[in-house]
Design a protein around this nucleic acid. Structure first.
Lengths: 255, 255
DNA sequence: ACGCATTTGTTCGTATGTATT
DNA sequence: TAATACATACGAACAAATGCG
């Protein structure tokens, strides 16, 4: 966006200029990345930040505004500005787009299938920007929806996480945890997901997946491949979900 | 969000208070809805608007800012603020999320299959907020992607439009049109899509759809049901797309 | 090629309103 | 009630991009 009128030669693509509020925004992000303020905590008030960075309150405000619209920060009038967290029920379903067709609120239960450490397969390593052969944690789980008196499997999730970041993530630890998984990652491993990219396609259920999802082999399933990022655009989770969309759908808003 | 501290009784949920800039925003939207400024045109400068509405430039600015982040307006430094349009190549693919797996830019060709006027089926009428039995226009088309030297069908689209708004929309008219369909709607029927909701699921190809998409019956397809809205949250298009996701995927960004 | 007017973009400052504790 | 925080609103000045004479 910036270097449209850049000199025709030499300089690769120098930023060369950045508005003050963008610089402040970058500084705030650095603070968040460095753990100066943790998810759920208040950051200093606008006047304090203005004093610290030697800019006007309005400039701080503009930086915070952008971080708030990106869901990195949350403003609360009269209380302060907080680091976003996956703890609150409001933000609970920020990354879950699967809804029941009947319009009822999502109410999925977890069933943990597996959790193991291993060398990351080449493709996984590439997407997570790991060195070849580096260790990764793989997690498998089912999400089940109440259907009358029963629980029917709806989602089969496969997760890959960098082993260095998730030391000590075990089956027991996951099993014991109540609450959103991303909240566990925040609280126990200091990894906070702020953004994700998803690729969706329709696929046919393989034999083994079909068993777990309790559908006939060949049943059309929605495949959702997610790459989730922390601060600094670092990919830290690869997730492959298979959604059975008989009584649920993936909702998206375009604008 | 507003009436959290409202008096416990009588009033249902009165807005009771709206910031100035929100009122200005509403006035701008009314102007857009009324056709005072058409897609692609400039709106008055910030100072002019400030004078007209008797508020400060900063207040106008905040209203315009919000409309710009909603993609209703587009700001261009040094030139002015413009009404968003589906004409420009930049916004061309705003509502198209299907991308080739190989990362190449989307390059889909159209093939019109059908265009007819008829009474809207009950379900279509309900979603488009039409009176029962009201006339609707149905359009069918294929989107094809170049694959080597051939063209392979990738998307089968089924559209429903309110008949009263789209008088004179014929097969010939569609056939003759070069450019985005939403641009045709803007230019010829004064209907501008600003927002859409999509519901995605995986389905098996029916016999007739399979023929058109050149896939075996039962092939998993991505079903995308879109409801598109104009100003004032009026639904004006129902679209059901079937995507063959063998070499393409639906991309989504979460934040 | 240059400068000028216009328009949005950035930055500052100040005052007041509203929500929370 | 008072203090603190974010929210709204105004005003002013300069920078950067654009288009025109």
């Amino acid at each position: 966006m910036s270097a449209a009128t850049a000199p025709a030669a030499s300089l690769p693509d120098a930023p060369a200029f950045s508005p003050l509020y963008q610089q402040i925004k970058a500084l705030l992000l650095k603070g968040l990345e460095g753990g100066e303020w943790l998810p759920g905590q208040v950051i200093p008030s606008e006047v304090e930040l203005a004093a610290r960075f030697r800019v006007s309150q309005g400039t701080v405000r503009k930086a915070v505004d952008e971080l708030a619209t990106e869901n990195v920060l949350v403003r609360r009038q009269g209380k302060g500005t907080f680091v976003a967290t996956h703890a609150e029920s409001a933000t609970q379903f920020r990354f879950l787009r699967l809804l029941p067709d009947d319009g009822s609120p999502p109410a999925l239960q977890r069933r943990l299938l597996d959790c193991r450490r291993m060398r990351a397969p080449a493709e996984v390593a590439r997407l997570l920007a790991l060195a070849p052969g580096e260790v990764a944690v793989q997690v498998r789980r089912l999400l089940l929806a109440p259907q009358g008196l029963e629980l029917l499997p709806v989602v089969l999730d496969d997760l890959w996480l960098p082993g260095t970041l998730f030391k000590g993530l075990t089956m027991e630890r996951l099993q014991a945890w109540r609450g959103p998984m991303y909240r566990l990652f925040e609280a126990e491993f200091a990894v906070h997901m702020i953004r994700a990219e998803e690729k969706l396609r329709a696929v046919a259920a393989q034999a083994d997946d079909a068993v777990l999802l309790a559908v006939p082999p060949g049943t059309p399933l929605l495949s959702v491949e997610r790459l989730a990022y922390t601060y600094g655009d670092r990919p830290v989770e690869l997730r492959r979900g298979l959604y059975h969309t008989a009584a649920h759908h993936y909702r998206n808003e375009l604008s």
